[in-house]
Amino acid sequence: MTRRAQGLNGWLLQRLSAAWLGLYAIFFLALLLVSPPPDHAAWRGWMAEPPMAVATLVTLLLLLVHAWIGGRDIIQDYLHPLAARGVALSLLGLALLACGAWALLIVVGVAT
C-alpha cells in the first residue's frame, strides 16, 4: 500500500482529488443553503437520484484517497521508528477501507 500514490503520482492525485472534492463541497453546501430538504422523504429522494448518488459515491471514494495521502504524509513526517510507522499506516489504511465499505453501503442502500 505504501508503494501506491507516492512521489509525483501522489502529488498529482492529491490535487486532482482536491479539485473534485472542492467542487462537490461547494455544490453540496450551496444546495443545502438554497433548498434545504424539508423532511426525511425529500432528503432521501435527493440522495437517491442517480446523478447525486454517483457523484456522492465518487466524492466519498476520492475523499478516502485524499485522506490516505494526507494522513500518510503526516505520519511519515512525525513518526520515525519504522515499526510504529508501519502500525500507524496499517491502522489508517484499514480504517479508511472500513469507511469506504460503510460509505458504499450507505449510498447504494439509498439508491437501490
Partner: peptide, 20 residues
C-alpha cells in the same frame, strides 16, 4: 484542519447514515 477533517470522517458517515 486536514487531520481534523480526516478524524471526523466516521462521524460524518454516521450522520449521513442516520439521517437517511
Amino acid at each position: 484542519s486536514g487531520a481534523a477533517l480526516l478524524l471526523s470522517i466516521p462521524l460524518m458517515l454516521w450522520l449521513l447514515d442516520r439521517s437517511l
